[in-house]
């Protein structure tokens, strides 16, 4: 379980996170929703110790994130985290070099799944394919938790569908996933849990099936209520 406990963060005078708390379970897809600039990316960065928080605590399975955690949790930012001059094959080799959790079989499978050619240079890829390589490099790690920042933004519809398919496959199954988005429609049926953010706080944290069951509301219905209030 990933526990985010009352984290606060300021950028200059701007209070970006003002006491954010939520949890994300293993085996579930948790979706952080909020308009752009609401601090979603900052939360993911903070979980990965890529940016300091002013107060609060983040725990991964009850422990603080250390270097060993990176064999257990990975982060797929919205831009590719590999050197563009590398080919996909070289990028995979790099990952294999540093991560014990790298699973080349799964990487090869993902290459096929996304129809990518490993001899292609990353810099020569389309936006959609670059996003897929970025995803591949994260998903091929045998980690328990995966964080994804806006995996659907700024790419073509077919790539979006392909990426959405990942969420219903064994590539994600059993793992804990946190994804951020400002646009829910692509993935409404995929997610287990929703965390609605605004102005640096969590407005509501709920289970999407429970809300449908007990209140007959869609995720969008709840968002409408919460954000209008």
């Amino acid at each position: 379980m990933i526990e985010v406990k009352d984290i606060k963060k300021k950028f200059g005078r701007k209070q970006v996170l003002n006491g954010v708390s939520f949890t994300a379970n293993k085996g579930e897809i948790t979706c952080l929703i909020g308009i752009n600039g609401v601090g979603k990316t900052t939360i993911l960065n903070a979980i990965m110790a890529l940016t300091p928080v002013n107060s609060g605590e983040i725990l991964l399975d009850g422990q603080k994130v250390t270097k060993q955690s990176f064999e257990k949790i990975t982060f797929i930012p919205d831009a590719i985290t590999m050197i563009p001059q590398m080919t996909i094959a070289e990028a995979m080799e790099f990952m294999d070099d540093y991560y014990d959790s790298w699973n080349q079989n799964r990487a090869t499978e993902l290459l096929g799944f996304f129809k990518l050619k490993q001899e292609d240079k990353i810099s020569s890829l389309s936006k959609g394919n670059t996003a897929k390589v970025n995803l591949l490099l994260g998903l091929a790690l045998d980690v328990d938790y995966i964080l994804m920042d806006e995996p659907f933004s700024g790419i073509d519809i077919f790539s979006r569908e392909q990426i959405a398919d990942v969420f219903t496959s064994h590539l994600i199954e059993g793992r804990g996933v946190i994804i951020t988005t400002h646009e829910i429609s692509d993935i409404e049926h995929l997610i287990d849990k929703v965390v609605l953010l605004d102005e640096g706080i969590v407005l509501k944290e709920f289970n999407s099936e429970e809300v449908r069951e007990s209140e007959g509301k869609s995720v969008v219905d709840v968002m409408r209520e919460v954000y209008k209030a």
Partner: peptide, 17 residues
């Protein structure tokens, strides 16, 4: 469970349920 989830494009946990 897994096959159905990817066929229907929904969450495997939902299929389980």
């Amino acid at each position: 469970r897994r096959e159905l989830a990817s066929q229907l494009k929904i969450n495997p946990n939902t299929v389980q349920r």
